[in-house]
Amino acid sequence: MSGAEFVPLSLTPILIGVFAAIACALPGNFLVLRRQALIGDAISHVVLPGIVVAFLITGTVTAWPMMIGAAAAALLAVLLIEAIRRLGGIEPGAAMGVVFTTMFAGGVLLLERSDTSTVHLDVEHALMGNLESLIWLDAFGWGSLLDPEALAGLPPELLRMGLSMIGVVAFIWLFWRPLKISTFDEGFAQVMGMRTNLIGLSLVAVSALAAVAAFDAVGSIIVIAMFICPPAAARLMTDRLGAQVGWSVVFATLSAVLGYVLAGYGPLWLGAEDSVSAAGMIATMSGIVLGLAALFGPARGGAQG
């Protein structure tokens, strides 16, 4: 594949896919260790109506309205869960399940009934993302990477996803110690004076940021594979948290690159004429990596025996 074809058509989607995968995998490590893996799923469900409403109000798919809409939806979800739990006397798990699915369904319906013909926002993209469309039409080859004019035409999603990833990396790096200690032993962390509630809440907020930023790339359903699969596979490779996080980045990158390439070219190699969903293939690759780690990972099976 030549640069002239690769750079405009594949480079930016692959980069966005990799950034999204890493941004989700990093907090995913702690979510998995805290037995909160499905928080990522919950967040991605809940924020959909927020994103749609933000779009309906502003008429564009841009970063800040989407983030604000997502945050408002998450807040509403928390209030609804608390209200249902108290008024109905239902256990929290059931209250969450009801709120998440209802809000998500509401988002889907809202999206179906609204006019989104001018932008890439429809039900299919909301569910599975739109990675293939995030191409760099101003590029003509590798040389475009040094060409300011071409660089100006980079898809804005690339910058957004890149910045989100940097934000996530900074958070994990800065709060590594409190995250680790409060995940392992919350009571001990509290007695030491750590604000464990705040740490837990920040982790969820950072996960939400990653989920919303990854919305363009992989939609709101498949993003859960990015939160869970690379960290879970990484846990099976090592018994050290630092190494686990390292492995999760490797697996996230591998799944994103392989997934994108196989989605685009795999069917051609098999004789078909079209391609398949990149997000779907990335999630599938993540699952395959996890399966292989479960079969062959050196730290599998739990240490307790």
């Binding site: 260790l33 800065l174 200690i181 392992f184 001990f188």
Partner: peptide, 21 residues
Amino acid sequence: WDFPTTVLDVVLMGLSRELGL
């Protein structure tokens, strides 16, 4: 106790007040 960490690392958690962030 399945948490991915070593014995020495757990003891080092006791020093985290002076190690800070």
